[in-house]
């Protein structure tokens, strides 16, 4: 956005194809494995059938409802986690004693697999949508908080001194330096946070009584051995996770243009 680079039509280069080699190789291997009979066809359909089923399910709208539900749960859970995690992390990061006093709790629960807490959340929230969102938020909030806090704490000392020498008071140093300085680390937290949120939402949809969502769809398809639908749903879940990650990377590149420079 900021550099002088202009778009110059480039000559075709072999290097541009490299990213496609891995996925193509995987599909070829999958295809060969199925058609050569290395795996039981009942357990694994061919990639062609799977993709075909996927497009059918997307086209007739059958899968859209589940994608929509999972996406909404993920976004709500992530929104809550970000709304709590970023401000709290920045506040804790601005006061090292405050952070140190809760550091153990953050690190402990950050290291606890959130899926282990599902029974606990079941006791509190019951088998509800709120439960799925709450546990996913809980899983993400600590990662987001931790990264925002470290972003503030690891702000360049020189930059803080520079602002002070130029007459900035504590509030101005916070607003003009610490906050901006913490943004790239905050984005690392947000990116990890959205991935974790999706993981927990899918797990919750599988195991906390659910009638919708991709997690529910995957486990349902497995129960009735509808393997084509199961694989298609897994692919969609993966694509959703990848797309969310990509969106965050693009936002970061656009707004935190100085990151890593």
């Amino acid at each position: 956005m900021c550099s002088q680079e202009r778009y110059v039509p480039k000559k075709f280069e072999f290097g541009q194809l490299l990213p496609f080699i891995g996925p193509i190789a995987l599909f070829v291997f999958w295809y060969v494995a199925v058609s050569a009979g290395w795996v039981n066809k009942v357990l694994m359909p061919s990639p062609v059938d799977t993709i075909h089923h996927l497009f059918d399910a997307l086209a007739n709208g059958d899968m859209m409802g589940d994608i929509d539900t999972t996406f909404m749960r993920t976004m709500i859970a992530f929104g809550i986690a970000a709304a709590i995690g970023v401000p709290l992390g920045i506040a804790l990061g601005s006061s090292e004693p405050a952070y140190r006093s809760v550091e153990f709790l953050i690190d402990f629960f950050r290291s606890t697999p959130s899926s282990a807490l599902i029974p606990l959340f079941l006791l509190i929230f019951g088998i509800t949508d709120a439960n799925k969102i709450a546990i996913a938020s809980f899983a993400a909030v600590l990662v987001i908080l931790f990264n925002s806090a470290y972003g503030v704490m690891h702000a360049r000392k020189t930059r803080i001194l520079a602002a002070r020498v130029m007459g900035a008071n504590s509030w101005q140093i916070f607003r003009d330096v610490l906050l901006l300085e913490s943004l790239s680390q905050t984005f690392v937290g947000l990116r990890n946070g959205i991935s974790i949120t999706l993981v927990i939402v899918i797990v919750a949809e599988m195991f906390i009584g659910s009638e919708s969502g991709l997690g529910h769809r995957i486990i349902d398809a497995q129960q009735i051995l509808n393997v084509k639908d199961m694989y298609a749903s897994i692919l969609v879940t993966g694509a959703l996770g990848y797309a969310l990650n990509l969106v965050f990377m693009l936002i970061e590149k656009r707004f935190i243009h100085w990151s890593g420079k």
């Binding site: 360049r156 020189t158 930059r159 001194l161 520079a162 602002a163 020498v165 130029m166 007459g167 900035a168 101005q172 003009d176 330096v177 901006l180 943004l183 243009h257 100085w258 420079k261």
Partner: peptide, 30 residues
């Protein structure tokens, strides 16, 4: 009023501000 030039310019400038806004920063603070 003092001015200070740091050894490590990379860490002293504000990378989120354009060069011209870096120069203007102390003036805006005033």
């Amino acid at each position: 009023v003092i001015g200070y030039v740091f050894q490590n310019y990379r860490e002293a400038l504000f990378p989120w501000l354009r060069a011209v806004d870096n120069i203007a920063y102390p003036l805006r603070r005033m």
